[in-house]
């Protein structure tokens, strides 16, 4: 067992857990923060996306012990216009991928603002390109939605990105 202190949504939590416990399981099973979802447990669906120091990561592949000292933000700690935009654009159906989509979109908007290119960025040497639908779709492709709410999700992000 390892005693760690995990900072989640602005508060510190002392945990005594085995090193193989993922950040995802630590959140869901040890801290009761079940808003972060488990869809595949292998980094293939994005449902477990949380922000670590503002950057989006897959918490299923993150050993919790490795994230001691990092500031973790989960859906429970988020109050963002995207949440309302998702509802209004119907960017969700069953709601299971939704927390991951929202965390991912927040991270994505920050990355774009920082000048991060994507696989569909036409000219890599040029920074500050427009965040068009093709860019949003590529950048959000790490978040699967089996209900097929992709159009609504893109609309919601476009609306908030302005």
């Amino acid at each position: 067992m390892a005693e760690i202190s995990l900072r989640v949504n602005g508060s510190a939590h002392e945990l005594d857990i085995q090193p193989q416990v993922s950040l995802l399981d630590a959140l869901r099973e040890h801290l009761g923060l079940t808003g972060t979802k488990k869809g595949c447990d292998q980094g293939a669906c994005g449902a477990c996306t949380v922000l670590a120091d503002g950057e989006r990561i897959n918490s299923c592949l993150a050993p919790a012990v490795q994230y001691e000292g990092r500031e973790i933000t989960t859906i429970e700690g988020i109050g963002h216009p995207l949440q309302e935009a998702f509802v209004h654009a119907d960017g969700l159906q069953c709601g299971y991928c939704t927390p991951g989509q929202i965390c991912s979109a927040i991270g994505m908007l920050a990355e774009h603002k920082d000048g991060m290119p994507s696989a569909v960025t036409e000219h890599l040497a040029v920074t500050g390109g427009e965040l068009d639908d093709a860019e949003i779709r590529e950048r959000m492709s790490g978040n699967l939605c089996r209900c097929g709410a992709y159009n609504g999700i893109v609309s919601a992000i476009r609306e908030v990105a302005g």
């Binding site: 980094g43 989006r56 592949l61 994505m108 790490g142």
Partner: peptide
């Protein structure tokens, strides 16, 4: 990005943004 665009592009084509952040 300017000197080795092929490398930046290759990395961006791998996995997902979340995984690339890790």
């Amino acid at each position: 990005r300017t000197r080795y665009p092929v490398l930046a592009q290759a990395v961006l084509h791998g996995a997902s943004a979340q995984l690339r952040n890790m």
